[in-house]
Amino acid sequence: MINKKEFTEILEFLEEHIAQIDMVPADDVLQNLWQTRLANDESALRENEFPLNAAVCLVIEVISDREKKILPTIQAEQLVLRYLDQQSIHPDWQQIGILPENGDIYVHLSCRIALEKMAKLVTDVVSLASWDNKECPVCGDSPAFACLEKGQGKRLLVCGACLTQWRYKRIGCAFCNEENPEKLKIVTAEEFPGWSATVCLTCKGYLKTADLRTLTSTPNWYKAVMETLPLDYALTLHEKST
């Protein structure tokens, strides 16, 4: 099982290698298409526009580095496609001779980082200023985190898939739109200053929030999944007590 240190090493390896993978800049036609979709309250990217080639390249590189195994491109592509469809592909990893838990992390981070780079191409050329939906304007996924901006503390949602950030109303559940303050509870963990979680009593969803007015730096959102586990524990205790 990959520990926190190994997770960081894998993440840094992939972030270094994605910088070496070229993606074709958007031409005027594509830019106009993305902007038109956003104007129609649709996400800029479609499922079939996922950056498959970039994800495949990253999977090949990370497995070569971590497992000392060489995957043919066609096999790596099949792994990525099956993972995108199923989210876990234990039998495939077992056949290759890789621990399934490790393999899933390799392909998960590879897909996330490839999509993040694709999303950056989108946000570099289109405006998200008018987007006020709870789904990501780039890929349509749900938020994984929120953060409060420095200064006025306006809320940004952080996409769980491509890490795109966009402004969203300060009060309200980012999953079901509940706005009744009595239905929205704020939970904190003393050992985790600068972070909180908004719990919706209507849909039972919760969103962890980083207050950038008090934190010394913006979190690395990949690492934050593991680093904010104390908040998840606090939320579990909160749920049991209510």
Rank of each mutant, 00 (worst) to 15 (best):
A189L: 03
A189E: 13
E190Y: 03
E190A: 15
E190C: 09
E191K: 15
E191C: 11
E191H: 12
P193H: 04
P193R: 05
G194Q: 10
G194Y: 02
G194E: 04
W195S: 01
W195E: 03
W195P: 01
W195M: 05
S196C: 05
S196T: 01
S196A: 06
S196R: 13
S196I: 00
S196H: 08
S196L: 04
A197D: 05
A197S: 10
A197W: 03
V199K: 08
V199Q: 10
V199S: 06
C200W: 04
C200S: 08
C200N: 07
L201E: 13
T202Q: 15
C203L: 08
C203P: 04
K204E: 15
G205M: 12
G205I: 04
G205D: 14
Y206M: 06
K208C: 08
K208F: 14
K208N: 09
K208I: 15
K208T: 13
T209M: 08
T209G: 04
T209E: 13
A210R: 00
A210Y: 03
D211V: 00
L212V: 01
R213A: 11
T214K: 13
T214Y: 11
T214N: 07
T214E: 12
L215G: 03
L215V: 02
L215Q: 09
T216D: 14
T216L: 12
T216Y: 01
T216E: 14
S217N: 14
S217T: 07
S217Q: 14
T218L: 01
P219A: 02
N220S: 06
W221M: 00
Y222T: 07
Y222W: 09
Y222C: 06
Y222A: 13
K223Y: 08
K223Q: 07
K223A: 11
A224M: 02
V225I: 15
V225W: 10
V225K: 11
V225S: 12
E227N: 12
E227F: 03
E227G: 03
T228E: 07
T228V: 10
L229S: 04
L229F: 07
P230F: 00
L231T: 02
D232K: 14
D232M: 05
Y233R: 13
Y233Q: 09
A234H: 06
A234D: 06
L235E: 02
L235S: 01
L235N: 05
T236V: 11
L237Q: 13
L237G: 00
L237K: 13
L237T: 14
H238I: 02
H238T: 09
H238E: 14
E239Y: 05
E239S: 04
E239K: 06
K240P: 00
S241T: 10
T242N: 10
T242F: 08
T242H: 08
